[in-house]
Amino acid sequence: MRRTRPAAALLAAFLAALALPTAARAEIVRVGYWSSGVSLGFGAVLETGKYMEKEGLTVEYVKFPDVNAPTKAMAAGAIDFAIGASAGTAFSVIADGLPLSIVLASQVADLDFVVLEDSPIRTMADLRTKKIGTSPAGSATAVITAAILETNYGIKAGDYQGVPGNDPRLAQFLAQKDIDAAALRTVTIALLPDMKLRKLGSFREEWRKITKSDAPPVLGVGLMRNAWMKENPDGPAKVVAAMRKAYEFGRSDKDAVARALREAANLNETDARAYAALWDSIYTVRMEPADVASIRQAFEVYKSVGAVKGELPASALVTAPYEASKAVR
């Protein structure tokens, strides 16, 4: 009896696989998010609730310790979708021509400028010459801080000292009086009930002065690799549908959000509930015309303070996955 050569057998198997219906082959997506800050809560709910899997996707979650790392990983082709890529970094890499697309507004910059209760600083204008704690350079938080200070108060980058760090570190610096003020996420402030802080202003209020619009500043965006979108034409809508369903679940069941945070992030009961209570104000999953306009306006604001260069191509903001996701039940 004649034996089939291994190469011939492999070729036959390959051709047979190609003959299978597309739906029978699982769409694999690598999803990345920052394992701290705002991304943590949404990532925990998305992952523990298996929302991507429920849409028929085979998913690999990749967590990063740095706020800008997901965007860098996207640029290197290491992941396919970032649930909350820093808007500033996303703008920069897309303006540089990398084949990535913004498919969602996913995180709102819900931060406050705060000082210690006994600080002599009384107004935002008093921040000139001061040490201000904010997220690392290149992050959306750092860029929005710079835009607010320069546009609303004439305080340019050289008029103050920016001190980078994650929120817990900045809170520590503030408590030790190593910095004069900090831009902290409201979720962080909620987790510091014993720290006596005084609010100088909020990102939402200050952004409204810049844009003359009620649209909140976008902190993070859903960023997707163009090559993955082309290779998996039905995949982007499934990814966005999973994001939308996870968001609505979080809005409706804060107890479950807190439970996911306890399990995924080892938060205690009090901190998990405080975080969950802010879900509606720190997350969004939208790409309506108003959101597209807000993102484009944000790019122009970032550009005006030198945080990004070049232009944001019309093709960079893709609404088709969001619109198609509305038909996914």
Rank of each mutant, 00 (worst) to 15 (best):
Y302C: 02
A17D: 13
K309D: 13
V45H: 13
N68S: 01
T145V: 12
A264M: 15
A147M: 12
A227D: 14
A44R: 06
I28R: 15
I121L: 15
D214M: 10
G220I: 01
L104N: 11
V163T: 10
V257P: 00
A140K: 07
S119L: 02
G88F: 01
R2P: 12
A85N: 12
A241H: 10
P236Q: 12
D280W: 00
E206I: 00
A69P: 03
L149W: 05
D66I: 06
I210R: 09
R2C: 05
A8R: 14
V62K: 12
A316Y: 08
I102D: 00
K254A: 09
D167F: 11
G158W: 07
S325N: 03
L192G: 09
L116F: 06
D112Y: 10
A316W: 13
G165Q: 00
D80M: 04
T71H: 00
S39W: 05
L223F: 13
R128L: 09
R251C: 03
V240Y: 08
P6C: 04
E263W: 12
D234F: 01
A242T: 01
F81Q: 02
K72I: 03
R25Q: 15
D291Y: 13
E27L: 02
G56I: 05
I132F: 08
Y153N: 07
L10H: 09
D178E: 12
E323L: 12
L116G: 05
K196F: 08
R259K: 14
A260N: 15
A140P: 11
Q176F: 15
L20H: 03
E206A: 11
A265Y: 11
K303H: 07
A82P: 04
S101F: 11
T270K: 15
L174Q: 02
L127R: 04
E60S: 08
Q176I: 11
G77M: 08
A181Q: 01
Y61T: 07
L104V: 00
A274S: 15
F299W: 07
T188M: 10
A87S: 15
K72T: 08
